[in-house]
């Protein structure tokens, strides 16, 4: 029996629990639910991807590993890039697998499933790297978790708009390629630029 302490299991549980509250809050009538299902799945995804951010740098910062990494031969920007990538693969990818499940449970049509998965996977890249900036900035602060959420959630606006927008366009029979393209562009730009901000924030916290 595996222990339920792995961060991703917690994030998945949080994802499902948030989605469970939705029908309880807006009513269980399937017409109302299915209209908001893809968007709600994206909202829950953005919230769930916040969860493990606190551990992204905090532990290494506390036990001195981050000092070692900063002194090592690899530039801190590359370390930050690897951490963001790991966050995406270990947290974003499983959440992306769960996203279609949650959306369908809420009443999304089955034909949306591939696009929900793909948009969640690509969007996860942007969420991981944008979130990583918040995680690095809040190093050494008094209240990490809530602070990260306040710093990062406004920056999550573009991926949420493009991600949910692609699904909505597809559901409405419109062209969904632009939204998915913009979502990919945001993710790649975050992956390219985010590590510089993360590394600067880590150096500042270590100094």
């Amino acid at each position: 029996m595996p222990r339920i302490s792995a961060p991703i299991l917690l994030a998945l549980a949080f994802f499902v629990a948030t989605a469970t509250l939705l029908p309880l809050a807006v009513g269980a009538s399937s017409a109302r639910l299915s209209a908001v299902a893809p968007g709600s799945a994206w909202l829950a995804l953005a919230l769930a991807s916040l969860l493990s951010l606190e551990r992204l740098f905090e532990r290494d910062f506390e036990d001195g590993a981050l000092d070692m990494l900063a002194l090592g031969p690899v530039p801190l920007e590359m370390v930050a890039f690897a951490k963001g990538l790991a966050q995406w693969l270990a947290n974003g990818a499983p959440l992306a697998l769960a996203a279609p499940l949650v959306a369908v449970a809420l009443g999304a049509e089955l034909r949306l499933v591939p696009l929900i998965f793909i948009s969640a996977l690509i969007g996860g890249l942007g969420l991981a790297f944008t979130g990583g900036i918040g995680a690095a900035l809040s190093l050494g602060s008094k209240r990490g978790g809530v602070l990260i959420a306040v710093l990062v959630l406004p920056l999550f606006a573009p991926p949420v708009i493009f991600g949910a927008g692609a699904i909505e366009a597809f559901a409405g029979g419109l062209d969904w390629h632009p939204a998915l393209g913009l979502l990919s562009a945001y993710g790649l730009a975050a992956a390219a630029l985010g590590p510089f901000a993360m590394a600067a924030a880590c150096r500042n916290a270590l100094s």
Partner: peptide, 27 residues
């Protein structure tokens, strides 16, 4: 709000200012 919250959350004033500056540029 995020800028001000970050500045308030870090005790060391110089570090707080630099972290908040990074956030302002990201923003």
């Amino acid at each position: 709000i995020g800028y001000m919250a970050l500045q308030a959350a870090i005790d060391d004033e110089v570090k707080a200012a630099r972290a908040a500056s990074i956030l302002a540029l990201v923003g």
